[in-house]
Amino acid sequence: MSMGFSPWQQRAFERALASLDSGRLGHGLLVCGPAKLGKRALVDAIVARLLCQDASGAQPACGHCRACKLQQAGTHADAYRISFALNDKGEPRNVIVVEQIRDLGQKISLTAQLGGAIVSVIDPAEALNANAANALLKTLEEPQDGRYLILVSDTPYRLPATIRSRCQRIELRPPPLEEARAWLAGQGIDGSRIDEALALADGHPGAALALIEAQGLQLRRAVEKDLDALAQNRIALSETVKAWLDDRPAERLAHAAACVRDRGRLALLALLAQGSGEAFAELADWYDQANRVRAQLDTPLRSDLLLGELLLRWREVAAA
Rank of each mutant, 00 (worst) to 15 (best):
C68S: 06
H64A: 09
R11G: 04
L20N: 06
G38S: 03
F13W: 13
H64E: 12
Q53G: 00
R66P: 00
R24W: 07
R40Q: 11
A12I: 04
D54P: 00
G63C: 06
P34Q: 09
A48L: 09
G33M: 12
A61S: 13
L29I: 03
C65F: 07
F13Y: 15
I46L: 15
Q10A: 15
E14V: 13
A61E: 06
L17M: 15
F13S: 01
D54F: 03
K69L: 13
G28N: 04
G33D: 03
A58Y: 10
R49P: 02
V43K: 11
I46Y: 12
K36A: 04
A61M: 05
A67V: 00
A67K: 04
A55C: 11
G63T: 00
L20M: 13
L42Q: 09
L20Q: 14
C52M: 08
P60C: 03
P60A: 01
A35G: 10
S22H: 06
S56N: 05
R40E: 05
C32H: 10
P60S: 03
G57Q: 01
A18I: 09
S19A: 15
C68N: 08
L29R: 11
V31A: 04
A45D: 09
I46W: 08
A41G: 14
S56D: 08
Q53A: 14
A67P: 00
K36C: 01
A61I: 00
R11L: 11
H27R: 07
D21Y: 06
C52I: 04
A35Q: 15
L17N: 09
L25S: 05
R66L: 11
P34F: 09
A12D: 01
C68T: 01
G23D: 05
V43L: 12
A61C: 04
L50N: 11
D44W: 12
R66S: 04
C68L: 05
R15F: 03
R11Q: 15
D44Y: 11
A55G: 02
Q53P: 00
R24T: 10
D54A: 13
D21K: 15
R15I: 09
A67M: 03
L29T: 03
L30V: 04
S22K: 14
A55E: 06
S56V: 13
G28P: 04
K69D: 10
L50I: 03
G26S: 04
A18C: 07
L29E: 00
R11H: 14
A12Q: 14
Q59K: 07
G26V: 03
I46T: 02
L29P: 06
V43H: 11
R11I: 12
E14K: 13
D21F: 03
A67R: 02
C65P: 01
D21Q: 14
C68F: 13
R49S: 08
A41F: 03
R40H: 12
Q10S: 14
L17S: 08
V47I: 03
